[in-house]
Amino acid sequence: MLRYAGRRLFSLAVSLWVASLVIFLALEIVPGDPAAYMLGINAQEDTLAALREELGLNGSPMERYLAWIGGMFQGDFGTSYTYRTPVSEMIADRLWVSLPLALFALALSTLIAFPAGILAARNRGSVVDVAIMGGTQLGVAIPNFWFAMLMVLVFAINLRWFSAGGFPGWSEGIGPALKALTLPAIALALPQASILARVMRSALLDTLGEDYIRTARAKGLTQGQALRRHALRNALIPVLTIIGLQFSFLLAGAIIIENVFYLPGLGRLVFQAISARDLIVVESVVMLLVFAVIMVNFAVDIAYAWVDPRLRGRR
């Protein structure tokens, strides 16, 4: 188990390192002189020099990369050129919107998908199954930001149950904050729940066809007992994979959904940064999101070993 975790930890570190290289190359080396890029073509040479100095762009690429990485280890993401504030502070504020939103959506999608998938698998071929599968077919096909717009139209504009957008901040208490995140989280969760329910159903049907289910039935377990005691845990292995993948989609989706609801999250930040050509902010946000995705996949790998004893003994 420890050896397995250690190996995963090692590949986690390698992934993070290579990812940081890719991001650094794409956003600091490809544009040529980032300072010139940020200021536009009409910039004066002395303003350029000042900006380079300010952003620490004067060293060799190697030095800059090391400085960037070293800074991140200490929580220093550099200074935003447009806002003149430390990027880490800006990100920290926004993260408190985006991350809870993604987690909220993940929880919702899992809560919807598990019962739906299990119900459909247990009643394969029945009306229930057809209804659930039809519903997920729609859920997978619906663009989540459009669904969000429709919800705004119905629940905010017409019914006035929710506000159409904005975020009160966590200082106003958890209730109002969660309420502001509810519609966005539902919009995010719906397509993911549909995918997850389909995966859950087919994974369960696969495991229900396995020999050990027949063995269990021969021991006297009912169909339901065999499903609960044997099929579910085995089906969890493919389901975990999808949950891990989903988290990256949820983070990316959160960035888009924030636009619909005018939420002050990472999405708003990054789009403002793009239009302001603030590469430092873009770089930091992208690195942070990639970091989150890689960490979640690491967690999924560890969860595999928890579920599957065959992995624990392996290197």
Binding site: S11, V14, S15, V18, A19, V22, I23, A26, L27, V30, P31, Y37, L245, S248, F249, L251, A252, I255, I256, V270, A273, I274, R277, L279, V282, V285, V286, L289, V290, V293, I294, N297
Partner: peptide, 22 residues
């Protein structure tokens, strides 16, 4: 396969963000 894992860590939105930024 490691390269694949790496690309998986970059959802297409992030790739689009980086390309657009540059």
């Amino acid at each position: 396969m490691r390269g694949n894992d790496l690309i998986f860590a970059f959802p297409s939105l992030l790739i689009a963000i980086m390309i657009t930024a540059v």
